[in-house]
Design a protein around this nucleic acid. Sequence first.
DNA 1: CACCAGGGCGCAT
DNA 2: ATGCGCCATGGT
Length: 290
Amino acid sequence: MYNMKKVGMRGVFVIRIEDDFDLEKIADSGQCFRWQRDGDGFRIPFRDSLLFIRKVGPQDYEVDCTEEEFDSIWRPYFDLVRSYRAIRGKIKKKDDPVLFEAAKLGQGIRILKQDPWEMLITFIISQRKNIPAIRQAVEAVCRAAGKKKTAKDGTEWYMFPSAEEIASLSDEALASCRLGYRDKYVRAAAEAALRGEIDFQKLSALSHEDCLVELQKLYGVGIKVAQCVSLFGLHHLDAFPRDVWILRVLDEVYDGGKNYRFDAYAPYNGVMQQYLFEYYRNKDAREVSV
DNA sequence: CACCAGGGCGCAT
DNA sequence: ATGCGCCATGGT
């Protein structure tokens, strides 16, 4: 626990996180679509838990769970046992000034350990959508099929639905989530899961490459979605999803990717991908405001 | 191996 | 009001 020590304890307590950790940047990084801004903090749903977390000092965060819950659920979720500062330190300015700058601006981004089933459905839904639209569609699916929960403070929220819950939706109910042509992919994935054809335990034990091959056997899952599930759901940190922004930066800066040093950053190419994604997606806005 | 359709929303114009 | 583009994929 080199990057975290507790400062107090109660149902609400404050933890100190000394490693790279920036809630705003993680929330904006396109890996989680259900975080909700609440006052000066965030409400974060994960499986059957809801965490409220807010920054109360340079490295201090107030959380509304017990210490045991933080250690068993949220510390793994935030991947706090790993040093992202050390990963960032692998980037040398002279080798790659663009990635160096991206990582400087993206300091604080981490790769969350999210639920693989949720990631599969979420990234199937994500195709050809922008981030606000993904948020809306995912929330609609949760409201239509997920279990309703009430947090300790009375906040009502919906769990991400299981395969059974999604499969049991009528065509009309699923259509009401406005997933467009993706609804058939979502239904197919739920039915495949019910037939026992998706075993995330087995997938996470496979090599990253074999894992991608297996995921792509699912209807509606191509290389991009497979990489996202692998990175954000199975925590294969070398997975490198290529969305339009990454293809753009590879094309414009790295000669179509030929000059990008994948070998130098293995097995953390996925972390670098997050820095580049964030950097390039916000490039225009940054240039206008500066 | 190239297109191309298919939904719907965010966002700039 | 209107068109363009979005963390793609399957079909032809």
